[in-house]
């Protein structure tokens, strides 16, 4: 018996150059901050940033903010991803539906989520549901577009072959359309997750009493650049982590695709 193919050597091996670049950036930051050419009030040293991060971790503020933000982004993402995927499969598979809704999507898509914050506040107040809906909306549009594109690119010969082999509609969906579109769905979810973080920041800046972006705003009012740097670091790391996790999960399911 032959073994199933193992995915090519990505993942850990690819981390080398990335860590190298991070090291260079860190070194430049260190040199610039210690050179005295920038006022310390504007650019914190890596050491002070680390200390600010450790402070907020010790006080529990970091965990509380991270928890609030992750909960919002996670719920908004889940809602948007489910609806966006469903719409993407529908419009990608049925050109008639696609022709009807494409103009609407083309109009809505260029409007950034942050532009919708005032409207979302007016409609839903500044509570949690307004934030979740804003994130869900931004994720929905992004996921819809990617999934639609992937589904409409499923080779017609795959669907024809399935019909000629006597597969009924249900099997054509679960055994052909779903796996054929899976690489695109995975790409859509990764992109959707990054959009969720962007929308999260927009939503929290629009009025919140907790969360990573809320904390950034508060720290900004007190000109605590060390804390702001720490917050930005956490946001960036969060994005990278989520993407790595989704990519790793995806590779398990989409083992046949090179992307």
């Amino acid at each position: 018996m032959h073994a199933t193919p193992s995915p090519p050597g990505r993942g850990l091996a690819g981390l080398g150059p990335a860590l190298g670049t991070a090291g260079v950036v860190l070194a430049l930051w260190y040199l610039l901050a210690h050179s005295g050419s920038v006022a310390p009030g504007l650019l914190p040293t890596p050491g002070r940033t680390a200390a600010a991060l450790a402070d907020s971790a010790r006080s529990g503020a970091l965990a509380a903010d991270l928890g609030a933000s992750l909960s919002r982004a996670g719920q908004g993402f889940a809602l948007g991803a489910v609806i966006g995927s469903a719409l993407g499969f529908t419009t990608g598979y049925l050109p008639v539906v696609s022709a009807a809704v494409t103009p609407v999507v083309s109009f809505l898509r260029p409007i950034p989520a942050i532009a919708l914050v005032p409207l979302a506040t007016a409609w839903f107040g500044i509570g949690e549901s307004a934030k979740r809906l804003l994130i869900a909306y931004a994720v929905l549009l992004a996921v819809w577009l990617y999934v639609h594109d992937g589904v409409s690119r499923v080779p017609v010969s795959h669907l024809r072959a399935a019909r000629s082999l006597g597969a009924p509609l249900r099997r054509r969906f679960t055994e052909v359309l779903l796996p054929a579109a899976a690489p695109a769905v995975l790409a859509a979810l990764r992109y959707g997750a990054s959009v969720a973080l962007l929308a999260l920041v927009a939503a929290e800046l629009g009025g919140a009493d907790s969360g990573l972006a809320y904390r950034l705003q508060v720290d900004g009012q007190f000109l605590r650049v060390d804390r702001m740097f720490a917050g930005l670091l956490v946001l960036g790391l969060l994005g990278v982590t989520v993407d790595l996790v989704l990519a790793a999960v995806g590779r398990r399911f989409v083992h046949w695709s090179a992307s």
Partner: peptide, 29 residues
């Protein structure tokens, strides 16, 4: 389309997520 009329396509139209055996089993289901 119907299973009494089988088709072999120019570019094979195999399902890349299934093994050779899995592709044949698709027809047998």
């Amino acid at each position: 389309p119907g299973p009494e009329r089988g088709v072999v396509f120019q570019h094979y139209a195999l399902f890349p997520w299934r093994t050779a055996r899995g592709n044949v089993e698709f027809a047998l289901k």
